[in-house]
Amino acid sequence: METVIAIEKVSFQYPNQTSFALQNISLHVEKGEWLAIVGHNGSGKSTLAKMLNGLHYPQTGNVTIGGLILSEENVWLIREKLGMVFQNPDNQFVGTTVQDDVAFGLENAGVEQAEMKERVLSALEKVGMAAFLNQEPHHLSGGQKQRVAIASVIALRPDIILLDEATSMLDPSGREEVMETIRELKEKEGLTVISITHDLEEAAKADRVIVLNEGNLYTEGTPREIFQMDKDLLKLGLGVPFSVQLSQLLADEGLLLTQRHFNEEELVREIWTLNFAK
């Protein structure tokens, strides 16, 4: 496996703050994987997101993205490799219409007009927004705006897409719509996805989950592994997916279960075989 992001012993402290926002964090991201970084508000996950895009620089340690060590000299090269979708759908919509917004990054990159037309259209097709070319942002739903933001990123053909709480301001259908888009892109385009989130349904879709707490790397594992520690997660201010929560409640009621189930069918089956079928 090819490592696309390597974070080595990174620490960061905001000015006038006594505690570290990030403390001695090391982690790697492999090409083509979907990594979820979870943590409650103030766990350091936003600081980490900002660091991956050169908005902050580590005070100690190194961040390597696509073979380049993050520094002020090559931050623009790094931004070409890593595209970001932010939290607030309105505050990242630069263009006056959908197509202008997608074109904005291409204009910055100095792409020829004819090629731009093509790339705008194909990016919008990939996120299912091609029918909205001339729509103005205030006529779009939050989910649609976020899909346009995703199109703006993929039009620039980065290797990695970073979602910084990109679904937290959306309604359930918007969230669903954005996650589905990302899942498709990851599959078809082989994108590496990093999603920073406190939405557990979102984290559950990832290949690997990293839990941050108070600037430290608390634990990491597959979603299934992570959600086994349901009570610890609750202590960290995080929730757990429904079937995990129900597994816990059933176990408290004295039902026999082998694990915290991650999948509803699985849980039903096990309730049945261990407790009802005789």
Binding site: F242, S243, Q245, L246, L249, L250, D252, E253, G254, L255, E264, E265, L267, V268, R269, I271, W272, F276
Partner: peptide
């Protein structure tokens, strides 16, 4: 949704509709 899934397995409906996971866990138990 989970109650429906469970009822399918059980082959009959539960006595009433459970609205919280706590209630559902109690009912199953």
């Amino acid at each position: 949704r989970f109650q429906r899934l469970f009822e399918e397995k059980l082959g009959r409906p539960l006595g009433h509709l459970c609205l919280t996971p706590e209630e559902l866990a109690r009912e199953i138990s």
